[in-house]
Every structure is written in structure tokens, then in C-alpha cells.
């Protein structure tokens, strides 16, 4: 948990949209810059912000930019609800509100000198991107780094240019699979869990970070367990309704925890009993 924001935690700061970049259908990326002087918004990989459209509402969105570039803030957003649909209509120059950062972080220090397995499903790549930037900046601190990425179709592959560059640099071993192939797709068709059996890791010195739909994380964690990675070294990023980020509003509870202040990142043993259970 970072230091408390200087202003009240429920008060957003105005940020200007510097650039809007369309990604996949319904998905876009904002580059934001604060409109006022003040402390830069410093975050750690895994954390999220509450983004506001004034008079419309506020939604939690993971940070998907580079933590070492604190003068700008980057968020990848899927337009699915009342607030994000309005967000999609916003253009460069428009002002939005930002509160944060909130939540805990991926275990990047614990992963040093280890093989690292990043397993992501769908838009789960967006919250994982700050981790990837960190691993690339400090590549020498880590051993083998795998990015196992599953999406619905080849059209849904996020950040394709970056994926290509990361792969070609040899810094990451990227394996991609899709649920449904299409013309021109020569890659894998299947689930992320299928990719896990092929990777070469030292399971006693590995850390896995998983982000995607709950059902995907449930089965991915099991598959990683069967590669003999200790449950306590498998980390998941959970999602529930979040309205405040501060633990006041109660919406994000899952069993004994508040995702916004105790999570969103959990080691597998502490969330296993509550994972992929109907209506908890």
C-alpha cells in the first residue's frame, strides 16, 4: 500500500486525455497527463485507479502503462458499461477524473532470480503490461520469462506490435493461443492451460502471475500446480465490483477480503477457497 493521497481519497484529480489509441474492437487505450501541478501519480504494477467521467460515473481500471514513466498515466479500457461507453466517445484534450492508485501489487521482488510465468486471458494482458515493462527494464534480475496469452479470436489480440517486438528481442518467450481460429491464423487453437505443459521451468524457483476471467485463473492455477509450482508462488488478480477503492463501500468483498484494499493480487492459497464459487 502506498502513502495516502494528499487530498481526500474520494476526491478525483483532473487529468487531460493526451492520446486515444484504438486497440481491438471496443478496446482503447488512453494516455493521460495531470492538468494541475502536483505530485505525479506513482503506481506499482498490479494497482488500479478509479477513473471518472464527471456527471456520469466512476469505474476501476487497472493501470497498463510503465511504472517508470510516472509523468503519464496509461489505461486500456473496454467499453462495456454505462461509464466506459461514454469513455469511448472522449477525445484527446478532454478532461477526466482520476483517483488512486489503489490496491496491492504483483510480487516482482519475490520473482527475482526465478523463472517467471505470466498467464493471461483476454483483456488480462492490460493489467499485466506494467509487469512486463518492469521485467524488460530489469531483465537481468529474472531467469526465463514466459508470457502465455489466450484470447477469443486472433482479432482480439491486444498490443500485437509490442508482443511482436518483445518476442523478437528474445526477452520474453511468448506463446499465444485463441479459442477460435480464422483465415491466416497459423498459431495455436485452445486454452491457456494447454500452453502450460510445454514450458521449461524450474518449478522450485518459479513464480506465476495469472490474470484473466475467474474460471481461466481457476484452471490455470491448477495446471501450474501440476507443474509443481508451489501454490504460494502462484498469484492471481481478482475482479469484483469496486466503487471506492478505500474499503469503505463494501462492494468488492469476496469472503474474508476486500479486493480493493487487500487485493486485487492474491496468492493462490489465500483465495483458493473463494475462487470460482457460484455467487460468492
Amino acid at each position: 500500500m502506498g502513502a495516502l493521497p494528499a487530498i481526500r481519497p474520494m476526491t478525483p484529480r483532473p487529468f487531460r486525455i493526451e492520446a486515444v489509441r484504438p486497440e481491438t474492437p471496443n478496446v482503447f487505450t488512453w494516455t493521460l497527463r495531470p492538468t494541475q501541478e502536483g505530485e505525479p501519480l506513482v503506481f506499482q504494477p498490479g494497482q488500479f485507479n478509479m477513473l471518472s467521467i464527471f456527471g456520469v460515473g466512476e469505474v476501476p481500471i487497472s493501470v497498463s502503462g510503465d511504472a517508470e514513466q510516472s509523468e503519464i498515466l496509461v489505461h486500456t479500457i473496454r467499453s462495456v458499461g454505462t461509464v466506459t461507453q461514454v469513455m469511448e466517445t472522449k477525445k484527446a484534450g478532454d478532461i477526466i477524473g482520476v483517483r488512486g492508485p489503489f490496491g496491492n501489487t504483483w510480487p516482482l521482488q519475490a520473482a527475482e532470480d526465478c523463472d517467471v510465468v505470466l498467464a493471461v486471458g483476454g483483456l488480462g494482458l492490460a493489467p499485466m503490461r506494467p509487469t512486463i515493462y518492469h521485467l524488460l527494464h530489469h531483465r537481468e534480475r529474472y531467469k526465463r520469462v514466459y508470457l502465455l496469452y489466450g484470447t477469443r479470436t486472433p482479432k482480439d489480440i491486444l498490443y500485437p506490435d509490442e508482443l511482436k517486438a518483445w518476442s523478437e528481442s528474445g526477452a520474453l518467450d511468448i506463446r499465444t493461443t485463441v479459442d477460435v481460429g480464422m483465415d491466416g491464423w497459423n498459431g495455436e487453437v485452445g486454452l491457456v492451460t494447454d500452453l502450460i505443459s510445454d514450458i521449461r521451468i524450474d518449478p522450485y524457483h518459479s513464480i506465476a502471475m495469472v490474470c484473466g476471467p475467474e474460471i481461466m485463473m481457476h484452471f490455470t492455477a491448477k495446471a501450474l500446480f501440476h507443474r509443481r509450482i508451489a501454490p504460494a508462488r502462484i498469484f492471481l488478480s481478482m475482479e469484483r465490483s469496486m466503487r471506492c477503492g478505500t474499503g469503505w463501500c463494501g462492494h468488492c468483498q469476496l469472503g474474508p477480503t476486500f479486493l480493493c484494499k487487500d487485493g486485487p493480487v492474491y496468492d493462490y492459497p489465500s483465495i483458493q477457497a473463494w475462487l470460482h464459487k457460484r455467487e460468492l
Binding site: S52, F54, G55, E58, R243, C244, W248, C249, H251
Partner: peptide
């Protein structure tokens, strides 16, 4: 019971 909702108006 302490749960609350945030409501934006304009």
C-alpha cells in the same frame, strides 16, 4: 452495516 454506493449527478 456500512456499505455505500457512489452516485454521480449533473
Amino acid at each position: 452495516c456500512f456499505c455505500t454506493e457512489m452516485e454521480d449527478i449533473t
